[in-house]
Simulated assay, not measured.
Amino acid sequence: MTQQKAVLRSDGFTFKQFFVAHDRCAMKVGTDGVLLGAWAPVADAKRVLDIGTGSGLIALMLAQRTGESVAVDAVELDEQAAVQAQENAAASPWASRISVYRDDIRHWTQRCEHRYSLIVSNPPYFTPGSDCATPARASARSTTDLTHDMLLNCAESLITEDGYFCVVLPTTAGDRLLTLALQHGWHLRFRTDIADNDRRPPNRVLLALSPHPGEEFLDRMTIRGPDQRYSEAHCSLTRDFYLFR
């Protein structure tokens, strides 16, 4: 049994400082969300937004990583997922700092009066018509309701001048979003390509984009080493969250 499975329950996932129930969410707690929540640059974050929060996992991770003065807003379209995210936030040590909104991010963006120094999203990436077990899962995983073009437009409207917009995607989808983002006027600042192990090519990518140019930082990380144990880089990144690390 792996370390991750040791803390996985049928209804959710236990982390060091919080529990995420996800039995009413189409998308369960997974590696992608944990990687983004642990990786996104928070050093200068003053207000944080999680687009498509699902169970609230990434919002909770970012609340753990930021100071008491940092507010974390989370928007989720699916009603059941939004309610569960609200419950997870309320049960966490950061209940006073996390606000979950059940809304379409496109409509919410038009009403929002805040600007965010950090925006994160574990966005949909399948094209419409891809096979999924349930309609809710299809909506969460496909770009029918929220295309990457729409997502970039929303982030552009909400980001501060020196903020970061961060996503995690499969490599091919990430490259497509990056090309589209550059066309929108975004600038790549951080990129980490993720491979399951040294024998396989990267299959997912973490991207941090900014409205303004600056130095680019590119690196690569493997999740497991040759002995199939979690790599030191992966353990270092997730140590504050996973139990038994």
Rank of each mutant, 00 (worst) to 15 (best):
M1C: 10
Q3T: 14
Q3K: 15
K5W: 14
A6G: 15
R9Q: 15
D11H: 13
F13A: 04
F15A: 09
Q17R: 13
C25W: 08
A26D: 03
K28D: 11
K28R: 10
K28T: 00
V29L: 00
G30H: 05
D32S: 05
G33C: 04
L35N: 05
A40C: 09
V42C: 07
A43N: 11
A45P: 12
V48G: 07
S55T: 14
A59C: 03
L60E: 02
L62P: 06
Q64A: 09
A71N: 11
A71Q: 15
D78L: 15
E79R: 15
Q80H: 11
Q86F: 05
N88C: 13
A89E: 09
A90W: 11
S99W: 06
Y101A: 00
D103Y: 04
D104L: 10
R111N: 02
C112E: 05
H114E: 02
Y116N: 04
S117H: 03
I119K: 04
V120L: 01
S121L: 06
T127F: 01
S130R: 13
T134F: 10
P135H: 11
A136G: 02
A136Q: 13
S142E: 12
T144L: 12
T144E: 08
N153T: 14
C154I: 10
A155W: 06
S157V: 09
L158T: 01
V167F: 02
V167P: 00
V168D: 00
L169G: 05
P170C: 04
P170N: 05
A181D: 11
Q183E: 13
H187Y: 15
F190Q: 12
R191D: 02
R191G: 02
P201S: 13
V205N: 06
L207N: 03
A208L: 07
L209H: 06
P213V: 09
F217H: 13
D219E: 12
D219S: 14
T222Q: 05
P226I: 04
P226S: 09
E232G: 03
F241Q: 09
F241S: 10
F244A: 03
